[in-house]
Design a protein around this nucleic acid. Structure first.
Lengths: 207, 207
DNA sequence: TCGATTCCATAACGACCGGTATATAATGAC
DNA sequence: GTCATTATATACCGGTCGTTATGGAATCGA
């Protein structure tokens, strides 16, 4: 009942040392969850990809759900870093462009699964996965709130038409982002999504 | 090894008559698949919703995968009828508006599950569900081809800017449609999606 | 009434699920 | 060396999965 997280500093070197790198194992687990979703990823899939046995997994990460949450944390920290960058862009249009370009890059990377882990996992969790769904929805709402605030500021800056509802514009942008994620998992190429982005940008509201 | 479909005309009235309506049972199964996806819907869920036992289900519909395909056929025939109407609209803008308004209505209906059955099921199928995924992707591609053809005609009609790529515009529209489906399953209200539609329409390219 | 036929209900099948008990191997502390 | 401690490896747990075998109930043509 201790040291579930991977970032426990003092390194208690007593007892047999573990033979795997928790960091690499968590990355492998992230790849499986990303590709298959929470329910679709079985413990056999996870242990095979991580290169460890089930008792090692349970000792290091708790259980399947806790492992998923740690993988989701890493996903947001590493693969969704562009969203935090995007909010800092100077104009509403630049914010949207950064969001969309970053999403396309993340969703069609050749060394990662296609699509968005949140979309895959939130759609693919049944029964007890309500905790998963609630967690993802909560993250989504906080991201949405930040984007709405950014668009409101943009409107005050004269950066967006004053008759445009920032909340609706945020939903519009999220719809495009998550729609591209669905398209990416369905086989759309990077060029396909770049076309979507360029069209969306060409229509972006001005002044 | 016969009469898997529900539409076998001659009604062989020999033997004990079945005690349930295959049509209503299929509708109930559709609701379960729509809400939970292919993998997420268990046979126990299905039989409970359909009000029949497992042997009856297997006798009438084959197996789980064949039942899903029949449910998907009905979904496309009934719930996606607006897409065929949309393609007949006179202008590209009217086509897009019909698509989006129909999608919002279908995805936020109070008497049906939220979201899009294709998005839910394609995201949520693991392992042997590749057949499911392939089927949905094939349907999506044929729909896409029809929409691209419609937009190409619109461009020839002078209904769209001549420098606009019809394929990219089709992907853009699909991204919005499927993105709204993801939002709908995540709790977005009908008003939220109406806002997305009105923004997308306000930006729609002219002449 | 008598098969023949078709459907319903119960129970069972093997396979896999997430999770764990048990035993063994490898280290540090003493 | 010896013990406590921690990790690994194997096997197993109860439960659920999709699927099916079995037996009884209901309708037909004869």
């Amino acid at each position: 009942m201790e040291s579930i997280t991977t970032a426990d500093a003092p390194a208690p070197t007593r007892g047999r040392p573990r033979e795997f790198c928790p960091d690499a194992a968590l990355s492998a687990a992230l790849g499986v969850f990303w590709a298959k979703g929470y329910d679709g990823a079985s413990m056999a899939d996870l242990t095979a990809a991580m290169g460890i046995t089930k008792p090692s997994l349970y000792a290091a990460f708790g259980n399947k759900e806790q492992l998923f949450h740690q993988a989701l944390d890493r996903y947001e920290a590493e693969k969704l870093a562009y969203t935090r960058e995007a909010l800092k862009q100077p104009t509403a249009r630049a914010v949207a462009e950064h969001f969309m370009r970053g999403a396309v890059a993340a969703q069609t990377s050749t060394c990662d699964p296609k699509g968005c882990m949140g979309v895959v996992s939130a759609s693919a969790c049944g029964a007890e996965g309500d905790s998963i769904k609630a967690h993802i929805m909560q993250r989504r709402q906080s991201s949405n709130a930040a984007l709405v605030a950014r668009f409101e500021q943009a409107r005050q800056d004269g950066d967006l038409p004053s008759n445009l509802d920032p909340q609706a514009l945020a939903y519009y942008l999220y719809a495009i982002l998550q729609g591209m994620a669905v398209l990416a998992t369905s086989g759309a190429t990077r060029d396909d999504l770049d076309g979507v982005v360029s069209i969306a940008l060409s229509m972006w509201p001005t002044s």
